[in-house]
Simulated assay, not measured.
Amino acid sequence: MKIEGSSAIVTGGGSGLGEATARLLARLGAVVHVFDRNGEAAGRVAQDIGGVAVTGDVTDEGDAAKAFGLAAKAGDGLRILVNCAGIGTAGRILGKEGPMPLADFERVIRVNLIGTFNMMRLGAECMAANPELDDKARGVIVNTASVAAFEGQVGQAAYAASKGGIVSMALPAARELARFGIRVNTVAPGIFLTPLLAGLPQEAQDSLGAAIPYPARLGDPAEFADAVRFVIENQYVNGEVIRLDGGIRMQPR
């Protein structure tokens, strides 16, 4: 699908992987709506790229509807949705203080999995109203999982469950939305240099990078954005989960 002239929403677009994706799509000519709970961050990125800032929560139907209402009126209609919003709260199922509070597990599932589904269902509705392009295409959705979906580490039960759900949704969602000309794919990143990791000492960053077979370094958010670009532009990629991890297979700890 052609990116230039398309309207796009990037959730979590105010920082990290979402910010890198928003910046790349804007450089390629998309009208990018930067959707983030942090309105200040969304505004900063949107101003830099000539996009539209939308402050909101991906789990809130009203916030999501507001974003889609804006995006549907831009460019030639909403064609691209990239879901990068998420949280990474860690916690053991049974720790020194007792079992994990159920509310902690529910929060991770709600933001990462339910939030992704909420944006996907409303985005599909918006895209289905678009006129067809080549190959009867109307839009493309790219979700963000994690290698934790496959090799969740100790303390990652909630996070791994949420990302595993996103992985599992890729194929059935792609099959269901195919009749509307909407593709659904998922990128599962490994260890990337997001703001959280950037705050670690260089020695700690180097130690994490050394565990990656090749290249032995943390992933650059620009590399994630480039993978998203490939998924958007290659019309034959559908229902797929792409690991982007330098060949790492996470150990238990």
Rank of each mutant, 00 (worst) to 15 (best):
M1Q: 07
M1P: 08
G5M: 13
G5R: 12
A8V: 01
I9E: 03
G12A: 02
G16V: 06
G18E: 10
A20G: 06
R23D: 03
L25G: 02
A26N: 05
L28N: 13
L28V: 03
L28Q: 13
L28C: 08
G29K: 09
G29I: 08
A30T: 13
A30P: 13
V32Y: 10
F35R: 11
F35H: 12
F35S: 11
R37W: 02
N38K: 00
E40A: 15
A42V: 02
R44S: 06
V45I: 05
Q47D: 14
Q47K: 15
Q47S: 15
D48P: 04
G50Q: 10
G51T: 11
G51W: 13
D60S: 15
A65T: 15
A65F: 09
F68E: 07
A72D: 10
G75R: 06
G75S: 06
G75M: 11
G77F: 02
R79C: 07
I80R: 04
C84W: 00
C84S: 02
I87A: 00
T89C: 00
G91T: 02
R92T: 13
R92H: 14
K96G: 15
P101V: 08
P101G: 05
L102V: 15
E106K: 02
R107K: 15
V108G: 00
V108H: 02
V111Y: 03
N118F: 10
M119T: 15
M120A: 15
R121F: 08
L122S: 07
E125A: 15
C126N: 14
C126V: 14
M127G: 13
M127R: 13
A128C: 10
A128V: 08
N130C: 12
E132D: 12
D134Q: 07
K136V: 01
R138C: 12
G139T: 06
G139V: 10
V140N: 04
V142T: 05
N143G: 09
V147Q: 12
E151S: 02
G152M: 08
Q153W: 07
Q156W: 01
A160E: 01
A160Q: 04
A161G: 04
A161Y: 04
S162P: 03
S162G: 13
K163D: 04
A170L: 13
L171W: 14
P172T: 10
R175N: 15
R175Y: 12
R175F: 11
E176H: 14
L177P: 09
V184A: 04
N185F: 04
N185A: 14
T186P: 11
A188F: 07
G190Y: 02
G190H: 01
I191D: 01
I191R: 02
F192D: 01
F192L: 01
L197K: 14
L197E: 10
L200H: 09
P201R: 06
Q205W: 07
Q205H: 09
D206K: 15
A211P: 04
A211C: 07
I212G: 03
P213L: 10
P215Y: 04
R217M: 11
R217T: 06
R217N: 06
R217E: 04
L218P: 01
A222K: 14
A225I: 05
R229I: 00
R229L: 08
F230N: 13
V231A: 05
Y236M: 10
I242V: 06
I242P: 00
R243H: 03
L244C: 09
G246V: 12
G247P: 03
G247A: 07
R249N: 11
M250D: 00
Q251D: 05
R253P: 03
